[in-house]
Design a binder for these strands. Structure first.
Length: 192
DNA sequence: CAGAAGATCATCT
DNA sequence: GATGATCTTCTGT
């Protein structure tokens, strides 16, 4: 199992998003291995994408302006965390949001962290993925390429990934022109 | 199954 | 002071 390296992330954000589908997200906590196959992602591009936090360069979004292959973790609605992989297509800015995984290793731990007894709804949402895997803001800025607590392992490439939606988002009124969400899902993925 | 509402706080204006 | 790259619970069909 090879850990995805810097070169994987240092590409066009949309390409990285597509390529991440089917790869294995791994979290090691207390010596325990938690993992799952990536089934849904979303690409956020640089300053010209109004849907992206990088639309403004602030202390929070600064990580997205840094080197590729690092984790961008932030809290949302005061309740949940979202995990991103920073991408850097030469001089550009971007990140990929992990929206859903198919859990494989450490499922019992994930259930416990999620407060569930079954597998329904275990890891099918950005906040759920973070809760199940114990990902919080302490991992913001962590390296996904040389880190040992959070990284991605290479799996056999899948062909059935596709764009499910590109959506335009209004920002303060009628400003619909520049916001795009590139969401990719692994069609025909295993179900849990 | 679909829609509404509340939770709760880091971040930015 | 307002907002949000979400989730859960509750209501009604």
């Amino acid at each position: 199992m090879r850990q995805l390296s810097y070169d994987f992330y240092a590409r066009d954000t949309v390409q990285v998003a597509r390529a991440l589908l089917g790869q294995r997200l791994v979290r090691i906590v207390d010596g325990q291995r938690l993992s799952g196959l990536i089934t849904e992602v979303e690409a956020y591009t640089g300053p010209d994408d109004l849907a992206s936090h990088a639309r403004r360069r602030t202390p929070r979004s600064e990580i997205m302006y840094g080197p590729a292959g690092r984790a961008y973790v932030y809290m949302i609605y005061g309740v949940h965390f979202c995990l991103n992989a920073v991408c850097k297509p030469a001089g550009q800015v971007g990140a990929v949001l992990f929206r859903s995984i198919y859990p494989v290793e450490g499922i019992a731990v994930m259930r416990q962290r999620r407060g569930l007894t079954g597998d329904r709804g275990l890891t099918d949402g950005p906040g759920k993925v973070c809760q199940a895997m114990g990902i919080d803001q302490t991992l913001n800025g962590a390296s996904l390429t040389v880190g040992r607590e959070l990284f991605i392992e290479e799996e056999a490439e899948i062909a059935s990934a596709q764009v499910v939606s590109t959506k335009r988002v209004g920002v303060r009124g009628d400003d619909l022109a520049l916001a795009r969400l590139w969401r990719f899902i692994w069609v025909g993925r295993p179900r849990r």
